[in-house]
Design a protein around this nucleic acid. Sequence first.
DNA 1: CCCTTTCGATACACCGACGTATTGAGTACG
DNA 2: CGTACTCAATACGTCGGTGTATCGAAAGGG
Lengths: 206, 206
Amino acid sequence: MIEPAADRVPRRRAETRRRLLEAALPVFAEAGFGRSTVEQICERAGYTRGAFYSNFASLDELFLAVWEGRSAAMIAAVRAAFDAFTPVDLPDVRAVVERVLPAIPVDDAWFRVSAEFTAHALRNPGLRRVMTAREEAIAEALMPLMVELLARAGRSIPDPVALGQALVAMHDGTSVQCLMDPDNPLVWQRRRDLCVQVITAYTEEL
Amino acid sequence: MIEPAADRVPRRRAETRRRLLEAALPVFAEAGFGRSTVEQICERAGYTRGAFYSNFASLDELFLAVWEGRSAAMIAAVRAAFDAFTPVDLPDVRAVVERVLPAIPVDDAWFRVSAEFTAHALRNPGLRRVMTAREEAIAEALMPLMVELLARAGRSIPDPVALGQALVAMHDGTSVQCLMDPDNPLVWQRRRDLCVQVITAYTEEL
DNA sequence: CCCTTTCGATACACCGACGTATTGAGTACG
DNA sequence: CGTACTCAATACGTCGGTGTATCGAAAGGG
């Protein structure tokens, strides 16, 4: 169920794995994790169930692999976005938020999947540990960048961990609201505002 | 799938309905919505599938009914808690938070169910409307109480809607964190802190 | 160039859950 | 008291998904 290790993978298998992983996300998103079946995923990937079972032991294992891949990609994307912003002017907290926040995806399909995975993980101590570890990795990857950007806006962070947790909560909480009412610009505006307020509250002038 | 209307219900039917609704929540919480079956629920309620199908057209319909019932109960509980706090001293924002926040349940089983309902609702426009309506009802029920409590702590609220949205986001976001790591008092502490910060940021001295 | 290994497709047997149609018991009402 | 009706239990037939066992075909190594 866990076991993401597989170091010496032959060419053919790697390709099949990749396609299955790729097909899984949309299926999970459309049907919901609990309602997704091995067959649906294989069909979309263009394989039969035989291929699935020679690559994964269970749907849970596949799900976990998808989730790990996706969150790694997310880290990479956000880091790239951060790097791209390095040269621009960031006079204050609001400027940082206006620049950085749009780089963090609020993606409907992904949100559904991760909400269901969260619920699933809350039922399973093993998965829960994997999940908190992944969250920590994200925070660890992003906080140094945050520190630097805020320093350039003239702010220091007394308790980076607390700020990290607050930002994650803010992101998760406001994402739902934005997705529930996606055409209402006010909701998005309030998301940005809340982000500014949180950062301001958890930092102090240099 | 929607249709919650049923005004003239006979005695016997009402009892069966109630038992089925009661049995459904724990089943959904344990198995997940997608993996729950009509049979599991009937078994726990002490009926056969025949009873189910003469009371509900589908699992979806039952799910919606459960969710509506539970969120109504939640509103009532929180309101009762608020009322109980009316006489005590509330010198500042932190005192308000320390009093009120523990009254808002962070319940693992319910969180799982509502996370899955959220994901499900994001897939279904009809359900989405039901859900936003319910959220609004919650906010509407609680904001007046919030206004009064904060007034007693010497604070006014320039934009109550914005504060409401921020508090909901804060609650949702930090709930996950607390449930993921329930034995870590720091996480709970940070939840309270964030609440204080948000309220402070969205109110001003009278 | 063959021989071994690996991978994915097919076939198979097996539930578990579905929804409906029918039946019988309990209830209300004239 | 009898009739009409309502509701839950039972009894189907069906479908879709599961996981395993087997087999042929490609790939890779000596």
